[in-house]
Write a protein that binds this DNA or RNA. Structure first.
Length: 619
DNA sequence: GCAAGGTC
């Protein structure tokens, strides 16, 4: 019997279907000489410190540097504390039984670093010695799967990939566990002060933005505004220059020759520029972009959106949700017209679906090279039935985005008129000539509200128009906004782009901080630690969060660059570089950060202890 | 009591 092991049940079932295996067993599917089984993501995790004899949180244990890491079955939180997840235990038993019977093992976990690790941890935990082959595919279509099985690779081809994954895993443990205990202990062990490669830079981003706003000193500046009259149609123009000094603005303001002051034709048109601007449709959604949209439209947290989407996925209404790709391959694209056809009766989108069913579909989101482990989120074509309001809202965002993505460009006409009236003024106007994809949700531009001139009158250069109103505007420079979940998710995705070092920036170009699957959990962790709170839709640091930030802000652990450095080294390991060198570096860094935190955390608790409620102090 | 990673 050949055993195929997938990362998750949905993929295992899909593979079984392609082979025509139909006998459903508990935890696997059998048929045609194969058994198809699966994990549920990581079934195993690195054992916690106490399993190496580091009982209790004690200064003398630090740094904790296990000679050899142990694996343990994934735990879940219950009222009795952490216990082995019974579902995971059961599935591992099933996998063990199948491996024992296997004549051949075929690894079909996701084609990536973590997919490799998911399998290898199971394989080594079960002490399996049988050789295995690797299925490596980036598309789950029947043809891609068949082709992949005709081209199975020797398992050992991916040994270096496993090495890099293994290093990632152990390094996160070493740095995270040690830094967390070091800071918590030196601050007086009153509460858990967690630190980690991802959560701490994320906290730092939130805190530094908050402080930047708090310390922001608004600057006054002045603008001049005039209103002109073209044959009865009024429109507004603003001075091109801003003025720091009020006197300067007042001087120019006095020179504006308006009707009230006895000048019937005070504004002279200098230039008129009208050009069309084409807006391509947005790309299909990946998890992050959908979380951002759901946060903006409905105020859902990243975690809520992920849960709703997981529910839709389990009901087979949408494709795999934790994807980082906004593209689909040509094979998936071939099924899109059929998906669109099924929406013709939809109450909101029917008309657009009808239109698209005869139009040429835009292929901006079609690019097989940009499909990584999973493609962009699409509806499956199954008909939803009695969804909850929130689920329906998410489902509609997926469906609506699909229609948008394959729709036509939106064509706008942008008009710019410059006017001389003592100084130079400019009027901007935007008119939508052809709504294209924007007709799906029929909403105006959500990013920027265009100035008050939706459409400007037809004027010609050289024309002189009466100025019917003028105003001297006093304005203030504004600080950046606080992070909310949408802007934070975006910042996490792109955090690598701000890195100055070119190599580190390159190493992070496809990753950012965290992964699509983990970012929602990171936000929740920061909230659970009482480092940040939600205030309306904003994410605001607490006194505790700011105090922790103050201790670590100049340390490597608070910089996104740390992930960049790791990614660069991990990629080198994948290409065959020494594992021992990297491990030595990490061990070294673990010692350094642990010692530093044991010193610098002293006195930290006093900074926020008074803010804590008595009930929380007791524990 | 603790990381980050994956998933139900």
């Amino acid at each position: 019997m050949k055993i195929v092991i997938a990362e998750k049940p949905s993929v295992g079932r899909e593979l079984a279907k392609v082979f025509g295996a139909t006998t459903k067993k508990d935890g696997y599917i059998e048929g045609k000489g194969y058994s198809f089984t699966w994990a549920f993501g990581h079934l195993l995790q690195l054992a916690p410190p106490q399993e190496y004899g580091f009982i209790g949180w004690r200064r003398q244990h630090l740094p904790m540097l296990p000679k050899k890491f142990k694996l343990g079955i994934r735990k879940i939180k219950t009222k009795d504390g952490l216990v082995e997840d019974p579902g995971v235990r059961k599935q591992l038993d099933i996998i063990k039984k199948l491996f024992d019977e296997a004549t051949e093992i075929i690894v079909a976990t996701d084609a990536g670093r973590e997919g490799e690790l998911i399998f290898r941890y199971i394989y080594y935990f079960l002490k399996c010695k049988k050789p295995f082959k690797r299925l490596w595919i980036s598309s789950q279509t029947d043809e891609a799967i068949k082709e992949g099985f005709r081209n199975l690779k020797p398992g050992t081809d991916y040994d270096t990939l496993f090495n890099s994954a293994h290093c990632r895993s152990e390094s996160d443990w070493l740095v995270g566990m040690n830094a967390t205990q070091a800071l918590s202990i030196s601050a007086g062990s009153r509460s858990v002060l967690s630190l980690g490669r991802v959560q701490t830079p994320t906290l730092a981003m939130i805190c530094s933005r908050f402080l930047e706003i708090k310390n922001f000193v608004p600057q006054l500046y002045y603008q001049l505004a005039i209103q002109l009259d073209k044959d009865g149609q009024l429109f507004k123009a603003i001075s091109v220059n801003n003025f720091d000094k009020k006197e300067e603005a007042e001087e120019l303001f006095a020179k504006i020759e308006d009707v009230a002051a006895g000048f019937p034709n005070g504004g002279k048109i200098l230039t008129v520029e009208a050009k069309p601007r084409k807006e391509p449709p947005p790309l299909l959604h990946d998890l992050s972009s959908l979380q951002q949209e759901a946060n903006k439209r409905k105020g859902f947290t990243a975690d809520q959106t992920l849960n709703l989407l997981q529910g839709l996925y389990e009901s087979k209404l949408v494709t795999y949700p934790r994807t980082g790709s906004r593209y689909i391959g040509d094979d998936v694209f071939a099924g899109v017209p059929n998906l669109i056809d099924k929406l013709k009766d939809h109450k909101d989108f029917g008309k657009q679906a009808d239109f698209l069913s005869t139009a040429t579909l835009n292929k901006r989101s079609v690019n097989a090279k940009k499909v990584t482990d999973h493609h962009a989120i699409l509806p499956t074509g199954e008909s939803p039935y009695q969804l909850s309001g929130d689920k329906q809202a998410i489902y509609d965002m997926v469906v609506g985005r699909m229609l948008e993505a394959f729709h036509q460009e939106c064509i706008k006409e942008i008009t710019k008129i410059t006017i001389e009236a003592g100084s130079v003024f400019m009027a901007n106007g935007t008119v939508i000539r052809s709504a294209g994809w924007r007709s799906v949700f029929n909403e105006s531009d959500d990013d920027k509200k265009d100035e008050e001139n939706p459409s400007l009158p037809k004027v010609k250069a050289g024309e002189e128009l009466p100025i019917v109103n003028k105003a001297l505007l006093e304005k203030q420079t504004k600080p950046k906004s606080l992070y909310n979940e949408a802007s934070l998710l975006k910042a996490l995705e792109t955090s690598g782009k701000d890195i100055e070092d070119e190599e580190l920036r390159y190493a992070m170009k496809d990753s950012g901080l965290g992964t699509p699957a983990t970012r929602a959990a990171i936000i929740e962790t920061l909230i659970n630690r009482e480092y940040i709170v939600r205030e309306k839709r904003n994410l605001v640091p607490t006194t505790k969060g700011l105090a922790v930030y103050d201790v670590v802000k100049d340390q490597k652990i608070a910089q996104a660059e740390l992930t960049g450095q790791w990614e660069k080294r991990l990629e080198e390991i994948r290409s065959g570089a020494s594992v021992a060198d990297f491990k030595a570096e990490i061990t070294d860094y673990t010692r350094t950060i642990t010692n530093e935190l044991l010193q610098s955390g002293t006195g930290l608790a006093e900074k926020f202890a008074k803010e804590e409620k008595p009930a929380e102090k007791v524990s």
